[in-house]
């Protein structure tokens, strides 16, 4: 299962990097509004998927992982928001941090539903982890496809 999770993490990272390359090539064409929307969408989803997979690989020590994921999201947001101007930098850093923290929280609840007051899940823990890892990958792929389609419309 750890091999599968590392594979998902590598694919997510490559998808995010490809999205960054495609947006960076076209960055001189962006106006303020499209820059804001593109940075918000890409940053939130990429930092969410990366943080979710990263928490599944190292599930112990929740506070340290939340701090690491928050810094990862802020780094992603800074990288994407740097492309256009100041207001997209603010939106990217804020939404990247939000996405990282929400990924950590979703991973924690998916691994152990009893921290939210829910009864234990009907499925085993491995099935849940595999399902949420694949779901994060599919959502990221859908988001990147929608975002890169916006460059042609």
């Amino acid at each position: 299962m750890v091999i599968f999770l590392f594979l998902i993490l590598a694919i997510n990272f490559l998808l995010g990097f490809w999205c960054y390359r495609c947006l960076f090539k076209a960055r001189t064409l962006f106006d303020d509004r499209f820059g804001f929307n593109a940075v918000l969408t890409s940053t939130a989803m990429i930092s969410f998927a990366l943080a979710l997979t990263f928490f599944f690989i190292f599930p112990d020590n929740f506070p340290a992982m939340s701090i690491i994921n928050l810094s990862l999201g802020i780094g992603t947001g800074w990288l994407f928001g740097r492309m256009v101007n100041g207001q997209t930098l603010i939106a990217g850093v804020f939404n990247g941090g939000i996405g990282g923290m929400m990924g950590t929280m979703a991973g924690g609840v998916a691994k152990d539903p009893s921290i939210c007051g829910l009864p234990a899940s009907a499925f085993s823990e491995e099935v849940t982890v595999l399902f949420f890892g694949s779901a994060g990958f599919f959502l990221l792929a859908l988001t990147v496809a929608l975002l890169l389609f916006a460059l042609r419309v």
Partner: peptide
Amino acid sequence: QTLLTGYINGLMMGIMAPMVGA
């Protein structure tokens, strides 16, 4: 672009909603 904004906001809220309800 409004489609992109609505999409990402609905996705984030949908991930958060079962935790709020629980």
